[in-house]
Nucleic acid binder design. Structure first.
Lengths: 232, 232
DNA sequence: ACCTGAACACCGTTCAAGT
DNA sequence: ACCTGAACACCGTTCAAGT
């Protein structure tokens, strides 16, 4: 009786939280954030809007959960082969997040939103843990660990937000050829800025055009790591 | 005739772009981003929704314009009294943005959105110009100016996004007493995390609780500035 | 040129009802 | 316990019509 009742109770559970998340990420990857509507999602899963609410709550909760899933996965990956240096470890974490955003452009916006709205939520804590776990090995004394970790984390977050790559919200198509066009248009715009007001931009416009995002990102990390040696 | 015609043409222009921006910022300050609806705005200005579209375009354009206005104002302010050091100048710019967000909580989200979506728009360019204009005086050689400026700018953006302060989207009320409650709840949550998985968080939870956002922000800038000396 | 405001085409969320 | 889907209460945008 009891067994039968249990079986009956669960008879209809054909929908799981994981399934919904997976479908949501697929919609997001294909069409950006505006493609994820409750209607599109319930159609894709052949279910009703209420079923989605039942499993994952509101649309915003769903987006947060998808973001958390992907970022946590990125943080868990790249455990790095044995004898790597703390510097390599930190670069590895930073690039893992960088790459996750590259694969899922919509993530950039959502990651930033989540950090702004919940500055000490699981995503930030996960990042702090992975990065902060290395600062001791860098020679930073324990009473400066938090200073060191937060400088690194903040640099990483800022760099990622600006390198989130063109067309973050749009379709996800093109992207590569886009980049050149984007920088072309942008630098044309900068050159029209009054030189008197923007001497720096005029001085560096060439460098900006040539720079490689990933290389620049690593340069920035190297600068911060150098700065941390002063905390010893 | 011509004069009369001109006067007649402009007879009805009682609405200006500036007025709309001002009203929009007032709504945003009072009730956060969800309080800025086209309907609420047109009611406040005693006009129709079409009039707003005519002057400022879409809601998203309006939000971007409001963000740009406030950030540009922050960047123009604090020109700093005469013989200040480049370090002071950089700190001044960073804190000006920091303070603008403190006064307009909704700005944090919008600033980040704008940077993600338009990484080389006027806001970012303005920030780069103000910060980058100082790196020469720091002794950084010209071929590393862009590296130096972007490291600083990225650190500033990341730190601001995480210190955007609790309840970014909500009403804007409370805020001060909120903070303690927030960190209380957050650190309680961290202490429940498995120590084996989160050794770093457990080690620094006390520091996080005690830390002052502004001080921490300046410490991070000092670290980056130290790192930049290696570029000389 | 500037403004009006009704009409339109969407949203996300809720909830009584079913299994 | 899990799911359905119609109903609801909003949205932002458009556009013919007015001045």
């Amino acid at each position: 009786m009891t067994t039968r009742a249990r079986r009956t109770e669960r008879r209809n559970q054909v929908l799981s939280r994981e399934q919904i998340l997976e479908a949501a990420i697929a919609l997001l990857d294909a069409g950006g954030e505006r493609a994820l509507t409750v209607r599109a999602l319930s159609e894709r899963l052949s279910t009703g809007s209420g079923a989605i609410a039942y499993h994952v709550g509101k649309r915003d909760d769903l987006l947060d959960a998808a973001t958390e899933t992907l970022i946590m996965a990125a943080l868990k990956a790249k455990p790095a082969g044995a004898g790597t240096s703390p510097e390599d470890e930190i670069r590895g974490v930073a690039l893992a997040v960088f790459d996750a955003i590259d694969e899922h452009k919509w993530l950039a916006t959502r990651l930033m939103l989540q950090i702004v709205r919940n500055p000490m939520g699981p995503v930030t804590v996960g990042l702090f843990e992975r990065v902060g776990g290395q600062v001791g090995a860098l020679g930073v004394p324990e009473d400066r660990w938090f200073d060191a970790a937060s400088t690194l984390v903040h640099y990483i977050l800022g760099a990622i937000s600006q390198n989130a790559d063109i067309a973050g919200d749009a379709s996800g198509l093109d992207a590569d050829a886009d980049r050149e066009a984007f920088f072309g248009a942008a630098s044309a715009a900068w050159e029209e800025l009054p030189v008197a007001d923007y001497p720096f931009m005029h001085a560096v416009v060439g460098r900006i055009r040539e720079h490689d995002d990933r290389e620049q990102f690593l340069t920035g990390i190297a600068v911060v790591l150098d700065g941390l040696t002063r905390l010893r």
